[in-house]
Design a binder for these strands. Structure first.
Length: 561
RNA sequence: UGGGGCGUAGCCAAGUGGUAAGGCAGCGGAUUUUGAUUCCGCCAUGCGGAGGUUCGAAUCCUCCCGCCCCAGCCA
């Protein structure tokens, strides 16, 4: 493959970018304008990240622009809190809408005028049927619907009624404005869809100015047209709304006629990406909030320590297509580890401490060893780590009766303490329950720094902390929120993982971690990537495990037992 | 049984008539003061199935099978 071809691949190749490229080449468009149009009724999640990266990414790559537009047409569900959170999350992901921040509600007056235009053209009418009557007359998937008795109202009567709807003369649900299309269409979206409904409700932006609100279908395409969007990209479930999208634009004196393209939304194993379910997880107290580190929300991923670049890399890797799919969580984890491996400073922390006393180490001696901050990046420098007669090592790193391929500490066996000395286990101390509580070891002063002058080798290198110089901390380990790779969104409660949070309260961390900054990723050597949680106080450090390291031994160990 | 889509490896995904990219996972091996990282190698005689067209088919045609979406005054 030539360098040129490689470059093309790197920019990301998918059917939408193919269309954009072709539209540019043919001169159909001079500049590309896309938009990311969230409804402010919840927090953004990683599925939205796919859409954000697609829309802003295309704008970036082709020298166009991408608008951030809040699709705020349903005041009952929307809140200002969500608007602010969404803006923060898009920025965090690394995208900038510049001056192009819009709201569908900015266009309410224009949209209203276009509704009257449709009425005058005989293409819309006020329907007095109840919601139940409308449902009954819509027909079914296989049978045509029947026309409303109000469908043949005069233009004058429709106009009068619609104006009175706007004026607030009628209660919620009394009447709607409907497009007059085709009650027998195979496409149910074309069976006289509702364009406006009466909603006496406070809107986060327009307050009480309106008591009728446009439906998604009436607002979306026209908003696109007003903003000069060239490519209106949405998910697959809107595919059969496209004929309606086009019908409206063709029927109205809009300034442009954008085109809608659909792609498959993201699904992730062991995860649910449905705003309804995420909202229920929060409201039902199954998680601590929208930013709970177990949540697939951008706020949750951020708090967990996932870098935005890892999310962008992940999105690039999964591609954009029209086939429904479920992406393996391992792909996301790979992108996170890949980024963190390059950037995170290395530190030592013992998650489940086991005391080690070095019997031949001088009582009361003070010593520090020099440790690398990053093994592959000399520029990251080194730090001093206090060593001492009493240490903690990981409980998992000792086994009294080690199986065949266990390389770590065992009675009589010698291992290396990273950056320090070789030690040998001399004695195992147990409590009355027979549990190992302490190890008595000896060290070889000649191995300082971690190498034996006589060239002898050890099979394992362990992380450790000094007992008196380390501090206690809390560590939160996260597991998937769901027990099944494909949890049922309809009855998610049954698939909830009761072990999604594991709290370790007796963790010991080295001094370099005492001042860890919130949001700064560190690697706890041999454990994984962590970051200080916002729950931390000066007295009590709390760390989140972002993701563990790949653990080949865990697999070997499992198949061994 | 209506309309709209989609089926390429365990999971994503390129491919648009010239003989199946890439990534993740997995499996071997080398290096290693993280059982990490890094590096090397392996992993679809096959593209939902059956026919057909063609010198040649994942790509074109026919029929069949499977999966997803649509019957909100949600988006």
């Amino acid at each position: 493959m030539t360098i040129a071809e490689t470059t093309v691949r790197e920019t990301g190749q998918d059917f939408i970018r193919d269309i954009v490229r072709a539209d540019l080449a043919s001169g159909r468009h001079k500049t590309i304008v896309t938009r990311f149009p969230p409804e402010p009724n919840g927090y953004l999640h990683i599925g939205h990240a796919k859409s954000i990266c697609l829309n802003f990414g295309i704008a970036e790559e082709f020298g166009g622009r991408c608008h951030l537009r809040f699709d705020d047409t349903n005041p009952i569900k929307e809140e200002q809190e969500y608007i602010e959170a969404i803006k923060q999350d898009v920025r965090w992901l690394g995208f900038d809408w510049g001056e192009h921040l819009y709201h569908a509600s900015d266009y309410f007056e224009q949209l209203y005028a276009w509704a009257e235009h449709l009425i005058r053209a005989g293409k819309a009418y006020v329907d007095d049927q109840t919601q139940e009557e409308m449902r009954a007359t819509r027909g079914t998937l296989t049978e045509a619907g029947t026309e409303s008795p109000y469908r043949r109202r005069s233009v004058a009567e429709n106009l009068d009624l619609f104006r009175r709807m706007r004026a607030g003369e009628f209660p919620n649900g009394a009447r709607v404005l409907r497009a007059k299309i085709d009650m027998a269409s195979g496409n149910i979206n074309l069976r006289d869809p509702v364009l406006y409904r009466i909603l006496h409700a406070e809107h986060p932006r327009t307050g009480r100015a309106w008591c009728i609100y446009p439906s998604y279908d009436f607002a979306h395409g026209q908003s696109d047209a007003i903003e000069g969007i060239t490519h209106s990209i949405c998910t697959l479930e809107f595919e059969d709304h496209r004929p309606l999208y086009d019908w409206l634009l063709d029927s109205l004196p809009v300034p442009s006629h954008p085109h809608q393209y659909e792609f498959a939304r993201l699904n992730l194993t062991y995860t649910v990406l449905s705003k309804r379910v995420l909202t229920e997880l929060v409201r039902g107290g199954h998680v601590t909030g929208w930013d709970d580190p177990r949540m697939p929300t951008l706020a949750g991923l951020r708090r967990r320590g996932v870098p935005p670049t890892a999310i962008r890399d992940f999105v690039k890797r999964i591609g954009v297509a029209k086939a429904n799919s479920i992406v393996d969580m391992a792909m996301l984890e790979f992108s996170i580890r890949e980024h963190l491996n390059k950037t995170a400073r290395r530190r030592m922390a013992v998650l489940r401490p086991l005391k080690v006393v070095i019997e031949n180490y001088p009582e009361g001696a003070n010593e520090e060893v020099e440790a690398l901050n990053h093994p592959d990046d000399p520029a990251a420098g080194t730090r001093r780590v206090p060593f001492g007669r009493e240490l903690f090592i990981e409980h998992d790193d000792f086994l009294e009766n080690p199986p065949k391929k266990f390389f770590r500490l065992a009675p009589g066996r010698e291992v290396r303490l990273r950056y320090a000395y070789f030690i040998t286990c001399r004695e195992v101390i147990k409590n009355s329950a027979g549990e190992v509580t302490e190890l008595r070891c000896s060290y070889d002063p000649a191995t300082k720094g971690g190498n034996a002058p006589d060239g002898r080798k050890v099979q394992a290198t362990l992380h450790w902390v000094s007992a008196k110089d380390s501090r206690p901390a809390e560590v939160r380990l996260y597991n998937p929120l769901f027990t099944r790779p494909d949890p049922n969104a309809g009855s998610f409660a049954a698939d909830l993982n009761s072990n999604s949070l594991e709290v370790l309260v007796a963790v010991r961390v080295e001094p370099a971690l005492f001042n860890a900054r919130a949001g700064e990723a560190v690697q706890f050597e041999r454990q994984g990537y962590f970051c200080r949680d916002s729950d931390s106080t000066p007295e009590r450090l709390v760390f989140n495990r972002t993701v563990g390291l790949r653990d080949t031994w865990a697999k070997v160990g499992k198949s061994n037992t």
